[in-house]
Structure formats: C-alpha cells, structure tokens
Amino acid sequence: MGSLLRLEIARTFRNPVSMVFLIGFPLALYLLWTKVLPVSAGTGITDFAAYSMVSMATYGSLGGALFIGGAIALERTGGWLRQLAVTPLPGHGYVVAKLVAGMLGVLPSIVAVLAAGAALGGVRLAGTTWVVLVPLIWLGVLPFAALGVALGYSLAGQSANMAMIVVYFGLSVLGGLWVPVEALPDGLRAVAEYSPAYQAGSLGWRALDGLAPTGTAVAVLAGWTLLFCALAVWRYRRAL
C-alpha cells in the first residue's frame, strides 16, 4: 500500500487543476472580500481581514477534502478499482491512500490563504495563534473528506462532481464561509449553527480571539464525521 500512497501523494501535489481551484479560488475570494467589496459592513466583526482569512482557508481546505471523492468517482467509473482488485492491495488500501494523500493536499490551501492574510491582508496575530490555526482548520474539514468519499462511492463520474459542487457551495454559504452568518436571515442562522461548515469555521474564528473550540462545535463536527463515515462505509461496501 505504501507504493500506492506515494503515487497518490505525487498526484495530489502536481495536479494543476486542483491546485488552482483549491488555492487560487479561495485566495481570489479573500482579496475580493477584504479589498474590493464592503462585505464587512454591518457584521460587527472588528478584524474582518483576520476573520475572512480563516473563512477562506476553511473554505479552500473544505473543497480539497470534499473533492477527494470526486477523484474516487471518476476512477471507480473508469475501471481503476477493478484493476486494483486483481492486485494484492487490501480492499481498504485504495480509499486510505486517497484520504491520506487528499488530506495532505489540503494543507497548501490553508497555508496559502494564511500567508496572504499576513502579507496582503495586514493580519497580525500572535505566533502561537498562527501555529494553532493550521491544524484546527485541517481537523475541521475532516467530516467533508468522509462526505466526499460517501458521494464518490455513490455517484458515477461527472454527476459526482456536480453533486459535490452543489454541496460545496451550499454548505459553504450556509456555514458563513462566504458571508458571515450574522448577515444571514434569522432562520438560516439558527440552522447554520448545526452545519458542519460553520462549526469547522468556528474553530479558527474562536482561535483568533484566543478561545478554545466550544463543546457544541466539537459535538457537531464529531456527529457529522460519524454520520458521513457511516454513510461512506455503507456506500463503499455496496460499491465493491
């Protein structure tokens, strides 16, 4: 399995499409939100540059985690899993390699947006806060990796990618990653509190103020992770 993992990591870090999509897009949105559009007005957020930096780092890495499943759907449809099924690779070897390589591939988008925050957004934080932000954001998007795997084993090829784009944008907007939840209507805001993207973002947002994750955040993220993992395992078993 080590040999497949090495190959998957190499693929992750040289895929120009995902690197542009997962680094370029959040970076562009970050600059748009903080430099061009007056999104911060009326949200009551004092350091909007830092807040938005965390939002966009979460948004980019969330996409990276989710789209692990897009590759799974394409490769499954293309017959690669049948090819692997006649090698000694254990049944779970493929999905583990995809998850590990995919989650490593998430790190550059976190680092890139944080670097842009420091260099272009004028964000100034304590050294320990910078250090803590990376693993917090990274852990926060774990449920989306599980969701991506579930979708990847449920849908074929391009329809999986379409579904993921809908889920990606829908959950990101609902979770206040594009526009803070304070700007959402009251009803939606109440729902947002229990959405995985909002709670993933909350880990970083609270860290900006030196606060630990709330119990609710941990519970909500753990709940979604368990649910999506169960879904992924079920779909994975069916797909074999």
Binding site: A10, R11, G78, W80, R82
Partner: peptide
C-alpha cells in the same frame, strides 16, 4: 482485465 482502467495523470 478487458475493462481494467488505468489512471491517466501518471
């Protein structure tokens, strides 16, 4: 296999 797929980007 007749329908064994390969990954394209390697």
């Amino acid at each position: 296999l007749q329908d064994g797929g390969l990954i394209d980007d390697v």
